[in-house]
Every structure is written in structure tokens, then in C-alpha cells.
């Protein structure tokens, strides 16, 4: 019986080994988006917040839709996403306490340097989408209900295209995160809509480049909400609110503005803009 006894001891030991993780109870779970994680913002921002408050922030990076669902199930304390319409729906269901605008960046239309649909330099993003569809040029869609996906679908609509009906083999919904979509576009020479932060941080650019940018319809607003403790009693109300308060404080806003890669600013704080 030596085997079983020693195995049991080993199992117990291993469990104890991982137990200290339980001890750090001054922590919150934030359901956020792949774009905030893949852009590297959290890696920069969270250590500063931790140093200031001692609170560990555990980030689950998902698409906006999935992140809101994580909040709906009560598996997160705070949601930090970018799709205003979905966020307002979340609030109206009573799942969130209050929405605070935090920052924005913008979307950019990425494509191969060869630019088969000749959209480079267009200032009207709807026209660019129209052209891609007419030329049946390869387009990668996130297809995962993320904020970027929702923004992309809205742009097709703005271009007067019913993508559900008009899509063909040229339109590929991959159901994955921003980085995976960029990898896929890079590997197949396709167009893709990305948030600028992820794009700047992305290392496998290959021959992809920004083709269309600057249209105000490509504005990407981030909001943060505390999951409603009245619905989910396990929500760490005080710690979560402390994180939100810090994000929208002048200090937090300054940290966001200071995050740069290769001298490029990725996010623009706008907590003071009530209409954002």
C-alpha cells in the first residue's frame, strides 16, 4: 500500500503548494477584453495600481460579449469592456451598478501591403467596406461578439450591406480573439478590423499595414462597471469600486495616457466626457 499512501501525500502536498494563492484575498476579478490585454495596457497599469492600493487585479481576457456574460453569472467583480450598446443593455438588466467612461482608442482597417481592393488612404470607412465586399477581397471577422466584432458589424451596416445575407467565402468569421484574427489575416493576406492598441503591440505584422484610419465612426470607447452586488452577493463591492475610482481619477487617467509603445500613445483617457 506504499504507492497509494505516497501518492496521496504527494497530492496533498501539491494542493498545499497551490494554497497560498487562496490566501491573497485582497484581490478582484476583472472581466475584460482581449484588446486591453493583448495591447499590453494591463501589464503596465495593474502593477502601478497594486503598488498604490495593495489590491491584486486578476484579469480574464475575453470578448466584450463573453466578458459581460462572465459578469452576468457573477464570476467577476468588475467588467471593463468596449461596446456601449452592450454595456447599456447590461445596465438595464440590472447586472451592473453604473457605467463609467474610461478611455478610447480607435479602430483601424488593416490589410496586406498589396491592397487587392485598393482601399488605402480612403477617409470614408464605409466606402472602404463597400469596396472590399464588391471585390470579394478576403476579410477576417472576429465573429465572437466582442466589442471589435460589434463595431465591425455596425460598419457593414453603415456601408449599406447586410453582411448576414451578402457574405460569401471571402468573409471568414473565425470566432477568436484580436491577436488570432491578426495572425489569420497575416497568414492569408486578408483585411481585418483591429483596435489600434492591439495592432501597435502585435509582433507578427508580416506585410500587414494600416490602410484606413481616422474616420470618426472608428472611435472605440471603453467603459467600466461594477457587477451588481445586489444580484451577486459575492461581488467584492468595495475593492471593485476602488479600482474603478482609481481608473477614472486624474492619476489613473494620467497613467493610461502615459502608456506608449515605440513612442505611440495607445489609449486616450476621457473619463470627464459625460457623453462618452
Amino acid at each position: 500500500m506504499h504507492t497509494r499512501r505516497s501518492l496521496f501525500v504527494a497530492a496533498l502536498g501539491a494542493l498545499l503548494l497551490s494554497a497560498p494563492a487562496l490566501a491573497q484575498d485582497k484581490s478582484i476579478v476583472v472581466a475584460s477584453t482581449t484588446s486591453t490585454q493583448d495591447s499590453g495596457l494591463f501589464e503596465y497599469l495593474l502593477p502601478i495600481f497594486k503598488q498604490k492600493t495593495g489590491i491584486t487585479v486578476k484579469v480574464i481576457a475575453q470578448g466584450t460579449g463573453q466578458a459581460l456574460d462572465t459578469g452576468r453569472r457573477g464570476d467577476a467583480d468588475v467588467v471593463f469592456v468596449h461596446a456601449k450598446s452592450a454595456e447599456l443593455k447590461f445596465l438595464s438588466e440590472g447586472q451592473g451598478v453604473k457605467r463609467y467612461p474610461v478611455m478610447y482608442n480607435d479602430f483601424v482597417l488593416i490589410g496586406p501591403k498589396s491592397d487587392p481592393a485598393h482601399v488605402k488612404g480612403m477617409t470614408d470607412v464605409a466606402k472602404a467596406f463597400q469596396t472590399i465586399k464588391d471585390k470579394k477581397a478576403s476579410f477576417i471577422s472576429r465573429g465572437d461578439r466582442s466589442g471589435t466584432n460589434i463595431a465591425e458589424l455596425k460598419l457593414w451596416k453603415d456601408a449599406g450591406i447586410d453582411i448576414d445575407k451578402d457574405k460569401g467565402p471571402w468573409y471568414k468569421a473565425i470566432g477568436q480573439g484580436m491577436g488570432a484574427a491578426l495572425n489569420t489575416a497575416q497568414a492569408s493576406g486578408a483585411y481585418v478590423l483591429s483596435d489600434r492598441g492591439t495592432w501597435i503591440h502585435f509582433k507578427n505584422k508580416g506585410d500587414l499595414e494600416i490602410l484606413v484610419e481616422g474616420d470618426k465612426r472608428m472611435f472605440n470607447q471603453y467603459g467600466v462597471m461594477l457587477v451588481n452586488p445586489a444580484k451577486h452577493p459575492n461581488v467584492k463591492k468595495d475593492l471593485g469600486q476602488q479600482f474603478i475610482d482609481w481608473l477614472i481619477s486624474p492619476e489613473g487617467q494620467k497613467v493610461i495616457a502615459n502608456y506608449k509603445i515605440n513612442g505611440q500613445q495607445l489609449f486616450y483617457p476621457d473619463a470627464t466626457d459625460p457623453s462618452a
Binding site: 493583448d38 486578476k58 481576457a61 477568436q176 491577436g179 495572425n183 503591440h201 509582433k203 507578427n204
Partner: peptide
């Protein structure tokens, strides 16, 4: 959930680095 410093393992880190294009 692939939480950095808490539940990030080698395989989930590989998935993440791939999605960041850091092949």
C-alpha cells in the same frame, strides 16, 4: 481564465503569446 501570475500556465501562456503575435 489565464490570469497573469495566478492561473497562467505554460500552455495558456503559449496560447496568449500566439494571440499577441509573439511567436
Amino acid at each position: 481564465g489565464n490570469i497573469e501570475g495566478f492561473t497562467r500556465t505554460m500552455t495558456t501562456a503559449i496560447a496568449l503569446e500566439t494571440s499577441k503575435g509573439d511567436l
